[in-house]
Design a protein around this nucleic acid. Structure first.
Lengths: 238, 238
DNA sequence: GAGTGGTCTAGACCACTGA
DNA sequence: CAGTGGTCTAGACCACTCT
């Protein structure tokens, strides 16, 4: 019995070339796992193995219980310029939308107190939103604002750009910017919001934002579908 | 039959709390998949499922055919400051080492020509190295240099810092820096060099480097074990 | 050579989505 | 309701590492 490569590798290759050739286009649904396993004469577990490795590569993605789809091109994103999401997306000829999930006045968790240099048990405004690219949810974001700097903000329309609201209503402009990126896994609310399974790989971009005078104003935690984004930073070192 | 959560989630939780409590310490080997499946009264596939989701989270990592280990803390890395790897690691009280895999004079692939703004079929020096953190291989890096700027460099000891060699032997200093980050999967040589299975998630950091006069001098592609690093950028916007 | 993960088979039932 | 992926069982052989 000959065995050049593994079955998984062959299936991966077959699907990759279908995608490269354009027969399977961006956003299209793949056949079901059961159909694929018949097609390739193997079991669902082997098929899933191949699909998961293509997912890890960023070529396809999975929506919980809906199926597998060909991944669209990545959005190019420079976290140093805290620009308006919608503007950034439109400059790349694509379509953006934002949905507010929840708006709360909370007691800050210890990790947040540390991040924002707050005393223990401080209160914070928490805003949770999801953002979509061409109709597909690609990012879950959680903002935490210092309440004393944003009186009444929770009553405004928060599906707009926060950067815009900061400028227009509070005359606050961003100064310094600091961000961290880690590759990790989705769980709980994050997984649900992104219609991902528990344990799917995601990119977490955490940022602390300072105003024009160097004071901390807020932080945000962006959870990106890992295949949806390319972080791109171009800058002269300080 | 009661079913609060999935078995996978329970196993994940059990292992996580063992790690958090310090009973399983950084770098320690977990019991084998077979032992774990007996311990939890389930099959290897279910165990593997739980292990893979902890791997995605960055809590544990797998070395091909050697076993599963508790992941050490992430290295904090700012790609904007193209500092010496060894220096950076030592500042974080850890131990670094570098091994040269290969050194070649190659014809540039199309994507490289584009990246380095070269005419088709240009030649390049290619240097491949792996870098370890506390004895564990965490990064595979491929450098491509413009040959005319680095005569004789391939004969030097390339396990040192390239930045250092550039300064001392060629009087070249870095100016502008530009980098991209994508979350993708290991394959082929990369997987092998990092002792990862095909399809394991990695972080690819690509950089194009300019000299003090703004001319392109080289590029590098760093393939990081995804759990080994935290990208951290702190800078004032240009 | 013993032990490890890598790969694979051939099924099963469940939870959720969408028409 | 039919169809999808999510989860799970109970095995098997192979390729590789380590001693």
């Amino acid at each position: 019995m000959e065995r050049t490569t593994t079955q998984t590798a062959q299936i991966r290759l077959a699907l990759t070339s279908q995608i490269n050739s354009g027969l399977l286009q961006s956003g299209m649904k793949l056949p079901s796992e059961r159909e694929l396993s018949e097609l390739f004469g193997t079991t669902r577990i082997t098929i899933k193995e191949a699909l998961q490795s293509l997912e890890a590569e960023g070529r396809i993605y999975c929506e919980d219980r809906r199926g597998w789809f060909v991944a669209p091109p990545r959005l190019v994103y420079n976290p140093l310029y805290r620009s308006h999401f919608h503007e950034m997306v439109e400059r790349q000829q694509r379509q953006a939308s934002t949905r507010v999930l929840s708006v709360r006045n909370i007691v800050a968790a210890p990790s947040l107190c540390q991040e924002l240099e707050l005393p223990a048990l401080s209160r914070l405004f928490q805003i949770r939103r999801v953002r979509s690219l061409d109709g597909r949810v690609v990012m879950f974001v959680e903002h935490h604002l210092k309440p004393e700097r944003f009186p009444g903000i929770l009553e405004l329309d928060l599906s707009q750009s926060l950067t815009g609201i900061y400028q227009q209503h509070y005359d606050i402009h961003y100064g310094r910017s600091r961000f961290d990126i880690v590759s990790t896994a989705a769980s709980g609310e994050v997984a649900q919001a992104l219609t991902l399974g528990e344990g799917s790989p995601i990119l977490l971009v955490s940022r602390v934002n300072y105003d024009q005078h160097g004071a901390i104003i807020d932080s945000d935690h962006e959870y990106w579908r890992h295949d949806a984004v390319r972080i791109s930073v171009d800058s002269r070192p300080g």
